[in-house]
Amino acid sequence: MRIALFATCIVDAMYPRTAQATVAILERLGHTVVFPAGQACCGQMHVNSGYFKEALPVVANHVRAFDTEDYDVAVAPSGSCVASVKHQHGMVAKRCGEDALAARAAVVGAKTYELSQLLVDVLGVTDAAAQLGSHFPHTVTYHPSCHGMRLLKLGDRQLDLLKTVGGIEVRELPEADQCCGFGGTFSMKNADVSTAMLEDKTANICGTGASLCSGGDASCLMHIGGGLSRQGSAVGTLHFAEILAATLENPAHIAGDVQLAGRK
């Protein structure tokens, strides 16, 4: 299968290893990965902040990058960005009077999958150790991000995949379904409430005794990881794609106080 990678802006710029891991997993399964080079961002920061006019060129760019490309399906290692592509792009285009763009956005949206959705529903991955050689000998807890859980209805796909990684110990996160408090510009506009939500999330994470918190959205993980770092916690964050990509021969590097950065 020819799979177009939508890296997402935050992974592209801040967490390149998450995208590299996504490529590694898909290639390990024998698929061809393409990277539409015109891609930038899904635009949800603009949309969710009410800046529809400013979102429009971002949406148009994404649609252009992905409807001029030849591929079977597109994938992104982010529930939130996929939800934006699927649910927001058409709405923004229509509101700005761009009906033709809305129609093209619908086609792109229909072909776009979140990584665990693609792995489980399309590529039939049910056992990461057996099918991907995944090996990760660490204690991990898992936070399901809201948009994946509620907008994409991902259910336990990411968690179930993690549980089948060789050597891993997955600890259940209490109140896992509670938002971590990120919410895009919410974390700046309503910093106090966001912080209060974050503190409860990090307390629950630390209470599990896990050494890492995994998840499927780099932005939420940056928020949670940034909080843990500020609190002086040794617990780090790591995208589930990087855990799936890790093998015995090629283990993921999890040292350092902010886990995902500056390791290359």
Binding site: A7, D12, M14, Y15, R17, E199, G226, S229, A261, G262
Partner: peptide, 22 residues
């Protein structure tokens, strides 16, 4: 406005190259 973020959260050091560059 970004101070709202750093009041309770660190920002990780960016990587030396982006995915796109890699």
């Amino acid at each position: 406005i970004v101070a709202g973020w750093t009041q309770s959260r660190d920002i990780p050091a960016p990587p030396s190259q982006s995915f796109r560059q890699w």
